[in-house]
Design a protein around this nucleic acid. Structure first.
Length: 644
RNA sequence: GCCCCGGUAGCUCAGCUCGGUUAGAGCGCCGCCUUGGUAAGGCGGAGGCCGCGGGUUCGAAUCCCGCCCGGGGCUCCA
């Protein structure tokens, strides 16, 4: 007896020898899972299999199938409109699907995309059955060769399988592992999103394919909601919001691509962040250092970076000596350490710098603040003994968590990159070094109670590392913190300490950047909050709005009180209607507005308006200050003795 | 770096297909009026190397070529 479980949890007894599709309510599922394997709904139920689980759009497999069939519909539409197009591949992706086509040198215009979308709708309308067919690989090669599908032939020729599957819908046939929806009519709402180009199999030596992206859903409402969310994400794009709020700009045509100028308001936020970082690091036992922006290229020859990093460095010559703008801070921190002989008693030594570096990133990868050519790392290098490594890692993770929570991020994902034990020759350091270090990393995470994923073979040749990703307010993941162990630089620079036994030993070095880059972090923060920074970060925390010019005197008194209390406040000039000025301030995303009119002048109170909450009513200025004292302050200064 | 698309006022965009009056709109900015109570008061005005350079033409924002910059991807990210 075989059970059949529907997406709503109901269980039926499956009839042997009939397809799943015939036995379930119409359109109640998309695909099924049998013994861990995904099958088409047209699959014929056999004796002796486990429970058949029918999946719908709410499951990842259901969505993937939905989008995969959608991509076939896309390909079919393109073949109808552009019979000469050669098919590449067309998978479902995290959100939606794409299909690659070789158009023989031309590309799709926006009008083409509209026609394609229209043709896709026709194919859905035709409700074509999607039929799986298995055949010998050789037979498939013949089939696709006869159709002129050279890319399919190439894929087939590289496959190991003797038998492959193809899927047919109407006149269209595609090489595909499946599974698929039973009919094209299962796709209810679809949208062709955009086209771009991509290389066949991601290799720029290969021909260029035209890639068309699309999305589809079981209902129009879901499609609409998706498109609206896309629009939301686009609207909070830091490259739009940043200049809009007058925080920064990147006038690349004047100063070059990938470089940022910080406007007063952005600079205020940045300064608050940097001051916070410096205070916290000092509290956590780091020492603050500074290092120059340029040095002889020889320095990076010693570190070994120059040979394979040179193309990414800004190199120039003065009086016959080659200099470079620093692409990293590590060698300088090593030189601080090496300025004298060090004892084990001094370790761990933690050197912290807000170090601005420049890297000549390839133009195609630049992306606003998220990938710039000049950026400032919250960079530290920790020199430690092997004995203290684990505790030190633990402390770094603890600091990292404190910082992330302070900035309003609650969800983290942690990965450890380890070496590939099958190829120890590709790595620097002994097996003992690696095992001990990797154990220390894992042990520190376990003690912290973090779940983590081990990425075997992902480590750099010079040491294992921990990566921390965080999840933002709209569910996107960002790789931020890196804690990287280094067995290489200490050897190259001969970085040692004298141990308790009087012997000179090589230190273990930890590179760590927790926010990563201030620019990038700022961009992520801006999108995370959609410009609505929490009170402690807001560039203008309070704006005072006099109702009319006759209230300006009192408004100035209030301003003085706020400024001397250390609050970032400004004063509106009382021109124009109050409604208009409130609207302006709301658009500037100022968190608190204090309205002062006749009533307030008379009573000595202020009318408080909080962004997102509206009018909170009037209160005494002292009460207001007391109420918000904590919130105005950076997290590390709250709950202390500071008073207004 | 490679492929595709784009660049018009401070911002968002129309005009370009098919070359031809003085290149437009909304917002913003400036001025005047309005003295206003929690998201847009009224009237007027200024503002353009139509990305840069070259070519075709009697004539180029518009057509062609090169470059710069941006966007979407591919790739890379020790």
């Amino acid at each position: 007896m075989v059970k059949l479980r529907l997406p709503d949890g109901r269980e039926l007894e499956a009839k042997i020898g009939e397809s799943i599709l015939e036995q379930i309510p119409p359109e109640s599922g998309l695909v099924a899972k049998v013994d861990g394997r995904l099958v088409d709904l047209t699959w014929i139920v056999r004796e002796g299999v486990g429970t058949i689980e029918v999946l719908n759009f709410n499951s990842p497999e259901g969505r993937e199938t939905y989008w995969h069939t959608s991509s076939h519909i896309l390909a079919q539409a393109v073949k109808r409109l552009f019979p000469d197009a050669k098919l590449g591949i067309g998978p479902a992706i995290e959100e939606g699907f794409f299909y690659d086509f070789d158009l023989g040198g031309r590309s799709f215009s926006p009008e083409d995309l509209e026609r394609i979308e229209g043709e896709m709708r026709s194919i859905v309308e035709e409700n074509l059955p999607v039929v799986r067919e298995e055949m010998e690989r050789e037979e498939a090669i013949k089939l696709f060769r006869s159709m002129g599908e050279v890319y399919k032939v190439e894929l087939l020729e590289e496959m190991d399988e003797d038998v492959v599957s193809v899927y047919r819908q109407g006149e269209f046939v595609d090489l595909c592992r499946g599974p698929h929806l039973p009919y094209t009519g299962y796709v209810k709402a679809l949208k062709v999103l955009h086209a771009s180009s991509a290389y066949w199999r991601g290799d720029e030596r290969n021909p260029v394919m035209q890639r068309v992206y699309g999305i589809s859903f079981p209902t129009e409402e879901e499609l609409k909601r998706y498109l609206k969310m896309r629009e939301e994400a686009r609207k909070r794009d830091h490259r739009i919001v940043g200049p809009q709020l007058d925080l920064f700009s990147m006038p690349s045509e004047l100063i070059g691509p990938g470089l940022v100028i910080w406007h007063p308001k952005g600079a205020r936020i940045r300064r608050v962040i940097e001051d916070f970082l410096v205070r916290v690091h000092l509290k956590w036992g780091y020492e603050l250092v500074y290092s120059p922006h340029i040095a002889y290229t020889n320095l990076w020859r010693t570190s070994g970076h120059l040979s394979y990093y040179r193309d990414f460095m800004y190199v120039f010559e003065k009086e016959g000596i080659e200099h470079a703008v620093k692409p990293m801070n590590c060698p300088f921190h090593i030189l601080v350490y090496k300025s004298k002989r060090r004892s084990y008693r001094e370790l761990p030594m933690r050197l912290f710098e807000l170090g601005t570096v420049y890297r000549y990133e390839r133009s195609g990868v630049l992306h606003g603040l998220l990938r710039a050519r000049g950026f400032t790392q919250d960079d530290a290098h920790i020199f430690t003994t092997p004995e203290k490594l684990e505790e030190e890692i633990f402390r770094v993770i603890e600091l990292d968590e404190y910082l992330m929570r302070s900035f309003g991020f609650e969800e983290f994902k942690v990965e450890i990159s380890t070496w590939d034990p099958r190829h120890p020759e590709e790595y620097m350091g002994s097996e003992e070094d690696w095992n001990r270090a990797q154990y220390a990393l894992e042990e520190a995470l376990r003690k912290k109670g973090y779940e983590y994923e081990v990425m075997e073979g992902e480590a750099a040749f010079y040491g294992p590392k921990i990566d921390v990703k965080l999840v933002d307010s709209i569910g996107r993941e960002w790789q931020l913190s890196t804690i990287q162990l280094d067995f290489n630089l200490p050897k190259r620079f001969n970085v040692t300490y004298v141990d308790a036994d009087g012997n000179e030993k090589t230190v273990i070095m930890i590179h760590r950047a927790l926010l990563g880059s201030i620019e990038r972090f700022f961009g992520i923060l801006l999108e995370h909050y959609a410009g609505n920074f929490p009170l402690w970060l807001a560039p203008v925390q309070v704006r005072i709005l006099p109702v009319a010019e006759r209230h300006l005197d009192r408004a100035r008194e209030v301003l003085d009180r706020l400024l001397s209390a250390g609050i970032r406040a400004d004063l509106d000039d009382a021109r124009g209607t109050l409604g208009y000025r409130i609207r302006e301030s709301e658009l500037e995303k100022i968190p608190i507005l204090l309205v002062i009119g006749d009533r307030e002048v008379e009573s000595g109170k202020v009318a408080v308006r909080r962004k997102g909450k509206g009018n909170l009513g009037s209160m005494d200025l002292d009460v207001f200050l007391r109420e918000f004292t904590e919130e105005f302050l950076p997290p590390d200064l709250r709950g202390g003795s500071s008073t207004f």
